[in-house]
Amino acid sequence: AQGALELRLRQQVILSEFGVEALRATALMPLLQRATELCAEGMGAQFCKALEYQPSHDMLLVCAGVGWEPDSVGKAVVGADLASPAGYALKTGQPVISNHLENETRFRTPALMADHGIRRAVNVLITNRDGHYGVLE
Rank of each mutant, 00 (worst) to 15 (best):
Gln2Cys: 14
Gly3Pro: 11
Ala4Cys: 07
Leu5Val: 11
Leu5Phe: 11
Leu5Lys: 13
Leu5Cys: 09
Leu7Asp: 04
Leu7Asn: 05
Leu7Gln: 11
Arg10Cys: 12
Gln12Met: 09
Ile14His: 00
Leu15Glu: 04
Leu15Val: 11
Ser16Lys: 03
Val20Glu: 01
Glu21Val: 14
Leu23Arg: 14
Arg24His: 04
Thr26Asn: 15
Ala27Ile: 08
Leu28Arg: 01
Met29Lys: 12
Leu31Trp: 06
Leu32Val: 04
Gln33Lys: 10
Arg34Ala: 13
Arg34Thr: 10
Ala35Leu: 15
Thr36Val: 03
Glu37Met: 08
Glu37Lys: 10
Cys39Pro: 05
Ala40Ser: 13
Glu41Met: 02
Gly42Phe: 02
Gly44Leu: 08
Ala45Lys: 11
Ala45Gly: 11
Gln46Gly: 14
Phe47Asp: 12
Phe47Gly: 12
Cys48Asp: 11
Leu51Lys: 03
Gln54Gly: 10
Ser56Gln: 15
Asp58Ile: 05
Met59Ala: 04
Met59Val: 05
Leu60Cys: 08
Cys63Ser: 08
Ala64Val: 13
Ala64Thr: 13
Glu69Asp: 15
Pro70Met: 08
Asp71Ser: 12
Asp71Glu: 13
Val73His: 06
Lys75Tyr: 07
Ala76Lys: 00
Ala76Tyr: 02
Val77Met: 13
Gly79Val: 05
Asp81Ile: 04
Leu82Gly: 01
Ser84His: 02
Ser84Asp: 00
Pro85Gly: 03
Ala86Val: 10
Gly87Pro: 11
Tyr88Asn: 09
Tyr88Trp: 03
Ala89Pro: 06
Leu90Glu: 10
Leu90Ile: 04
Thr92Cys: 02
Val96Glu: 03
Val96Thr: 02
Ser98Leu: 11
Leu101Asp: 01
Glu102Trp: 12
Glu102Leu: 11
Asn103His: 08
Glu104Asp: 11
Glu104Thr: 15
Glu104Gly: 04
Glu104Ser: 15
Thr105Asn: 12
Arg106Thr: 02
Phe107Tyr: 00
Thr109Trp: 09
Pro110Gly: 00
Ala111Val: 15
Met113Leu: 15
Ile118Leu: 10
Arg119Met: 07
Val122Ala: 09
Val124Pro: 07
Val124Ala: 04
Val124Cys: 14
Arg129Ser: 10
Arg129His: 09
Arg129Met: 08
Asp130Thr: 05
Asp130Asn: 04
His132Cys: 10
Tyr133Met: 00
Tyr133Cys: 01
Leu136Pro: 06
